[in-house]
Amino acid sequence: MTAVSPAQIASAVAASEPVLVVRDLAKSFGGVRAVDGVSFSVLPGTMLALIGPNGAGKTTCFNMLNGQLRPDGGQVLLAGRPITGMKPRNVWRMGVGRTFQITATFTSMTVRENVQMALISHAGEIWSPFGRARDRHREAADALLAQVGMAAQAERACGVLAYGDLKRVELAVALANQPKLLLMDEPTAGMAPRERIELMALTADIAAAEGIAVLFTEHDMDVVFTHSDSVIVLDRGRLIAHGTAEEVRQDPNVRAVYLGTGATSGGH
């Protein structure tokens, strides 16, 4: 038996507070309600999958969380503080990391420099006009790269990396500001089945170890059902289901609008 310290109790209590709380989020484009009163929350160290048909409002929803779009209504709270309608760079400063559906790296820089760039920004050193950027935060960058298994390729140009490796670099960059929340837009799009599983297992490990909340969109049901703690389903801008992977999988409504029979996706 080990004694439980007060600090551990405090962190356990904090752990049950959601990192991200979304309330009644709404957005219309030209009179069409793309996102219509969506509410959900994500706990630290857990993975929440956001799924739904194309055009259901997933991307719109995502872009309102990361600041690319301003919501028409509703609230987004990060660790209890409102981030609704903030610009992407300020959302990042509040502690939100993100990866993109189409990999976004700085191609004129090496893998390590990509991570250093994020660390330089996090340290607020971006306006410094002198001193070599390559020499800054080198160890921290290498540590992050080691975490995602990319340390060996630190000196390579991002332009020549394999696709799966590029995704890992993106993950390292997204972790550079020690985020509370990680937003991943179709993180495994375009990857081979095994790579998909590997990347998401890595993400889940890091999330659990560091208490990061992860929200991701995904079309690969293998990934969703293996790596999410819970799943929310969006259809025509509305939340139509919310539950564990198994609950959502059995939901007849979800099967009708989204999952289908499972013939082409491995059957579930």
Binding site: N66, A104, T105, T107, M117
Partner: peptide
């Protein structure tokens, strides 16, 4: 470097606080 980041990928640059 920040300038090049902004050129290479503005979306990513904004997403790391630039």
């Amino acid at each position: 470097y920040g300038l090049r980041a902004a050129r290479d990928n503005p979306l990513r640059a904004e997403a790391i606080g630039l």
